[in-house]
Design a protein around this nucleic acid. Structure first.
Lengths: 172, 172
DNA sequence: CGAGTGATGTCACCTGGTGCCATCACCATA
DNA sequence: TATGGTGATGGCACCAGGTGACATCACTCG
């Protein structure tokens, strides 16, 4: 992460990372499957927590509330490390391959939530749509949250974005 | 594409593709920036057509109608080559790196539509949410459409998915 | 003390991807 | 016809990401 920040992602070689860490290139690849994966070390944890939030919600909760619960869970993790998230986000934004990786992580999150929603009795299509809307709102809110000079809480931004999404689909 | 279908994407080397095409590895990379890009040859065309559909819609149209117009444009292109889309989809589904590429293409589509929506006077957040909902519905409908034994038209599936999304956000 | 086990190093190797220069076909113009 | 320019291709060397196979070393357990 330090090296990525100092010299840029593309300009950093795995050999250099390994050297800085006092290891070998080979050993690096035993810990990380990828050069990219370093930036997504804890992503599955976030996924698990959002899924758990959905599973823990009351059975009668409508889809939008489930999304809200998952976003609240995400908010907790995000607020834990705002400046780190900012650095990480800037690095990811600098490289297309990292954005690709970020997108597939989001997709993985969505499919996990889809499974959880199906397990709660939602139809396949409804579950998929709901989960994807959740990642959509998360993405939009995250873009506003990171590097926000006012340091507005993520939870607030996510709530607003969700409300706006509701308006958009209701109007007309 | 033939080689990807025969031997699988991962097992196919660029040198083999070039040889089959009567070219050199070097020449291949002058036409395609990537080994992956072969599968996404016409993706920018689809993007342009969906953007054009949004721009061509009446000024008074609500967001959901704009999404509908863009999806109709996509439907036209999809129906042109159903079996090809099926093969292509199967190949993409077989490889994570191809899925990553597909996701970033969808994202690029979304940002292009976001720009178009902003140009029509939509707010930044509203535009982003609308565009992402469009790609979401497109994805869900596409998954149902491809390899569907009943050969239901894409337009129908997209319309249904969009209606279901509306229900999901309205309920509660 | 010796065997087994897990983490690391070492090396060879493959493949995707790029820079650089040579070559060749084609085309316009004198 | 000869000449020179231009665009597409080939050839080559090279780098970086990534993997497999084997050696080594530390640590633990009996």
């Amino acid at each position: 992460m330090a090296l990525y920040g100092e010299r840029g992602y593309d300009e950093t070689t795995v050999a250099e990372i390994a050297e800085r860490a006092g290891l070998t290139k080979r050993t690096f690849f035993r810990y990380f499957t990828d050069k990219r994966e370093v930036l997504f070390w804890n992503s599955d944890l976030l996924e698990q927590q959002m899924v758990a939030a959905i599973e823990a919600a009351p059975t009668s909760a409508p889809p939008l509330d489930l999304i809200g619960a998952a976003l609240d869970a995400a908010a907790v993790r995000f607020e834990e490390s705002r400046e780190f998230a900012g650095l990480r986000h800037r690095i990811v934004a600098s490289s297309p391959e990292l954005q690709e990786r970020e997108l597939i992580k989001a997709r993985s999150m969505a499919t996990a939530m889809t499974r959880a929603l199906c397990a709660r009795g939602a139809g396949d299509t409804a579950a998929a749509l709901t989960a994807l809307m959740c990642t959509t709102v998360m993405h939009v809110a995250f873009e506003q949250w990171v590097d926000d000079p006012d340091r507005t809480p993520f939870q607030q931004l996510a709530k607003d974005a969700l409300a706006q999404l509701r308006e958009l689909t209701a109007a007309g």
